[in-house]
């Protein structure tokens, strides 16, 4: 187990390194002279020269890269070109919105996807199960953006049929008033959760259908358990394995969904910040932000893989790279 965790950590480190190289190449090397890109077409030669010397853009690319990396290791993400505030401070602040948003989104997705997936898997040969499955196919085909808009039309304050929840912004005093903060995150989290939940439902359903004819469930039935009892007591550990893998896969689309939804609901989170920074060509900040978001996805993958290892007894003794 320790060996596995060490190997997996090693893979994680390699992953970060490869991603950082990729991000650096795409943003610093490919565009040619980055100072020109940042300065825009109207910048004077003097302004560009200042940009270069202030941000160390005149140093050789390799030392720019190693500077960036060593800064990252120390938690120094660089300084924003526009606001001149350390990027790490800004990011930490924005995660007060993005973190809870993602957690709420994935909670909604699991609350919807798991029970409904198990239910429709148990009833996959009946009309009710087929209807759930068809509806899920439909929901999974909806763009997150549209899901958010539909929710606004249904529940949004001022616009919606039900006139319930705020659709724009986040309280200025942040989490000082938890109720209001939660309210403003509810619709965006629902938008993410619905779409992700449909995917989780589909995977749970097929995992249940796959588990149903297994011998261990037949044994449980022979011992007097009903089909549902047998599945819930003996089958769930097996089903949870495939659900875990889906969560790892969904981490990437969760990040994407969060960025879109933050922009739609005007939430001051990390996603909106990234979009603004791209628009302002604050490439040094964009570079660190993209690496952070990619790292987030890699961390989820790492945690899921290790959890997978812990809860699946079949994998404990086998050493697999």
């Amino acid at each position: 187990m320790t060996l596995y965790v060490l190997r997996r950590l090693g893979l994680f480190a390699v992953g970060l390194l490869v991603t950082s190289l990729l991000v650096f190449t795409a943003l610093r090397v490919l565009p040619g002279d980055i100072a020109h890109v940042i300065g825009g077409t109207k910048a004077t030669p003097e302004q560009i020269a200042t940009l270069r010397s202030t941000y160390g853009l005149d140093a050789p690319l390799l030392s720019q890269y190693t500077d960036w990396l060593s800064g990252l290791v120390r938690g120094d993400l660089g300084i924003s070109l526009r606001t001149h505030v350390p990027i790490s401070t800004e990011v930490a602040e924005k995660f007060h919105v993005t973190g809870p948003l993602c957690l709420m989104g994935i909670t909604v997705a699991l609350l919807l996807g798991l029970p409904a997936g198990i239910w429709s898997g148990l009833r996959h040969d009946r009309p009710s199960g087929a209807i759930v499955s068809a509806v899920t196919q439909g929901v999974a085909a909806v763009p997150v953006l549209w899901a958010g808009l539909l929710l606004i039309l249904l529940l949004g304050k001022g616009v919606g049929l039900a006139n319930l929840l705020p659709t724009q912004g986040f309280p200025i005093d942040g989490w000082q008033q938890p109720g209001r903060a939660l309210q403003s995150l509810l619709l965006p989290a629902l938008a993410i959760g619905l779409v992700e939940g449909a995917v989780i439902l589909r995977f749970t359903r097929s995992a249940v259908i796959e588990a149903l004819p297994q011998d261990y469930l037949r044994t449980a039935a022979a011992q007097g358990l009903t089909r549902t009892q047998a599945l819930l007591r003996r089958g769930l550990p097996n089903v949870s394995l495939s659900v875990l893998s889906v969560i790892a896969l969904q981490a990437a689309s969760l990040v994407t969904g969060a960025v879109v939804v933050e922009a739609l609901f005007a939430l001051p989170g990390a996603g909106s910040m990234l979009v603004t920074d791209v628009a302002n060509r604050d490439l040094i900040k964009v570079q660190s932000e993209i690496l952070l978001l990619a790292a987030l996805v890699l961390v989820v993958g790492l945690l899921v893989d290790i959890t997978h290892r812990i809860i699946d007894p079949r994998q404990r003794r086998v050493v697999v790279v």
Partner: peptide, 9 residues
């Protein structure tokens, strides 16, 4: 590793 990189990024 590349699989972890979202399309958006």
């Amino acid at each position: 590793i590349l699989v972890a990189l979202p399309v958006l990024l």
